[in-house]
Structures are given as structure tokens and as C-alpha cells.
């Protein structure tokens, strides 16, 4: 949620810079919109978690082994998804920059298409690919490479695959935007000054795309933290993320006070990570 805020906020800020004066009035609907849809529910959630008048729910959330473990699991998976997305998205974004317009359009289309498909459909698609009678196993079986189907589904790897598939575009687009702004002369300058390709990349190109890396990573990470459907379906119930537990407390156990506390814990955790990203981004921006 906070990721969306920051994007809207940033767009708004850009507009403020461009349009100067009249923008305060223009941004008012956004502010009201955010207040109603974001600030009020968060405050309500917080009040709910303190309804008992004590910190008991927070004490439980932060001391009970179950919730600490799940929170750490969630963090670990979010981190892995972010790292994997980065390694896949970076070359892809670079390809989109250097490719011929035709290929760039094809690439963009392939990236955007998943946005028009529901997460549920995409998740089921992975089940059809990775299942015991899925495409991969059938192909390997018919080629005689394996005798019995491999267990590719219902483990952490399949959850990671599904989440990376859904979230990678959020990494590609900020990278693409930043890469487009990198002056090609700088790379030529680096080569001309004696840098071999890889050193020019590491010392010049990569640092200059760092703002995009951080923006993409914070988006992917924050969205990962709240992921629900993909881990439930592709994890076979074995991969527990915090959102799954929150849902359980809200709809099954009706313990809204504790659900509120868990949500606040997730929100706080996410905000802490986000502010770290933001600080890094700020120092990057000072350089760039």
C-alpha cells in the first residue's frame, strides 16, 4: 500500500514542479482520496489493535514464536523475490533500451500482458506448467529424461517463480525509465578513458541506474510482503506468509484486534524497509 502512495505522491510532486502555483488545488482530490482510502483505515486498524487497552496483542505478535517466524519467513521470501526479480529485470530492461523498436514493442507487450490477466489465472497457469502432469514433466517424461514426474510444485521454489512472474514488471519499468535517461556519451567516455566493458558497466552504468534499482526493489519488496494468493496456491499450504495469517484472523477466527496488531506489525516493518530504501534513494539522487 505504501508503495502506491509513494508513486502517486511522486507523480503529484512532479506535477507540482511543472505547474507551480495551481497545483495545490489540483492535488486536493488526491489528498482527500488518500485520507479516506488510506489514512482512515490505518488509524481504525490501529485503534482496533489497542481496543483491549493494552499492548497484549503486540506482545503476542512480537514474542510468540509462530508470528515471529512467519514474519521472518515473509521477509525472507520478499527479499528473495526482490533479488531474483532484479537479476532477471536488469538485463531485460537493458534489452528494451538497446533493442530495435519492433523488438522493444514486442518486449513491452509481453511485459504488460500479464497486467491484463488476473493473478489467479497466472497462478493456475504455473500449476499447469509445473504440475506432475504439467508441460515440463510431460516433456521430460516423453523424452525419457526422467522415469517419474518431478515435484516442481508446492514448495518454496514454485512460490518464488509465481511471485517473480507477477512482480518482475514492477522492477523492469523503473529500471527502463532510469536507463533511458542515462547519457550514452558517458559510457563512451568511460571506454575512451580506458575502461573495459565490465568495468565501465560497474563503475559508470550501474551506479547511474541505481535510483531505478532502488525504486524497483522497494516496489517489488513491499508488494511481496503482502502477497497472498500465489503463496497459498503454489505453496501447497506449506509456505506461510503473514498476509495468510492475517486473513485467517479476520475471516475465520474473527479476532480483529490481533489481526489489527499483525497488520500494524506488517505495516511498520514495511515502512521501516521502505524508509531505508527511501534514504538510499535520496543519497543516490544527491549524486545523480
Amino acid at each position: 500500500m505504501s508503495a502506491h502512495i509513494s508513486l502517486i505522491d511522486r507523480l503529484r510532486r512532479n506535477r507540482v514542479i511543472r505547474e507551480h502555483g495551481g497545483s495545490v488545488a489540483l492535488s486536493l482530490p488526491t489528498v482527500i482520496f488518500l485520507l479516506i482510502l488510506f489514512a482512515v483505515p490505518v488509524v481504525q486498524l490501529m485503534l482496533l489493535s489497542f481496543q483491549s487497552g493494552t499492548f497484549e496483542h503486540y506482545e503476542k505478535a512480537f514474542t510468540d514464536e509462530l508470528y515471529v517466524t512467519v514474519l521472518l519467513n515473509t521477509f525472507e521470501i520478499a527479499l528473495l523475490v526482490t533479488v531474483i526479480s532484479f537479476f532477471l529485470a536488469y538485463p531485460l530492461a537493458y534489452f528494451l533500451i538497446v533493442a530495435q523498436p519492433l523488438w522493444r514493442n514486442i518486449g513491452m507487450f509481453c511485459l504488460l500482458m500479464p497486467f491484463w490477466t488476473s493473478i489467479l489465472v497466472r497462478t493456475y497457469a504455473w500449476m499447469a506448467i509445473l504440475g506432475r502432469r504439467g508441460i515440463i514433466n510431460e516433456a521430460l517424461l516423453s523424452l525419457g529424461i526422467i522415469d517419474a514426474p518431478l515435484s516442481l510444485l508446492y514448495n518454496t521454489s514454485s512460490v518464488l517463480i509465481g511471485m517473480v512472474h507477477v512482480l518482475m514488471p514492477y522492477m523492469v519499468f523503473p529500471l527502463y525509465a532510469v536507463m533511458r535517461r542515462v547519457d550514452p556519451n558517458l559510457m563512451q567516455a568511460a571506454y575512451g578513458l580506458g575502461a573495459p566493458n565490465w568495468r565501465a558497466f560497474l563503475r559508470v552504468y550501474f551506479p547511474m541506474t541505481m535510483p531505478g534499482v532502488l525504486a524497483g526493489a522497494s516496489l517489488v519488496f513491499i508488494l511481496s510482503m503482502g502477497f497472498f494468493i500465489t503463496p497459498v496456491l503454489l505453496g501447497g499450504g506449506r509456505v506461510t506468509m503473514i498476509a495468510v495469517l492475517i486473513e485467517q484472523f479476520v475471516t475465520e477466527l474473527l479476532d480483529w484486534e490481533f489481526a489489527g496488531a499483525l497488520s500494524m506489525a506488517l505495516l511498520t516493518f514495511t515502512l521501516v524497509v521502505y524508509s531505508i530504501f527511501k534514504r538510499l534513494m535520496k543519497s543516490e539522487r544527491n549524486l545523480a
Binding site: M127, G131, R132, V232, L233, G236, G237
Partner: peptide, 19 residues
């Protein structure tokens, strides 16, 4: 237990798919 199901349609589908 390969899959701990959550949605009602899952178990029938898992049997059908041979999972």
C-alpha cells in the same frame, strides 16, 4: 501431504490433475 488445500475446488482438481 503434497498440498494443504485452502480453496474448496482444489482437492477435486488435484485428483483430476493427478497431483
Amino acid at each position: 501431504i503434497t498440498v494443504w488445500w485452502k480453496a474448496g475446488q482444489q482437492p477435486a482438481q488435484l485428483l483430476l490433475d493427478g497431483e
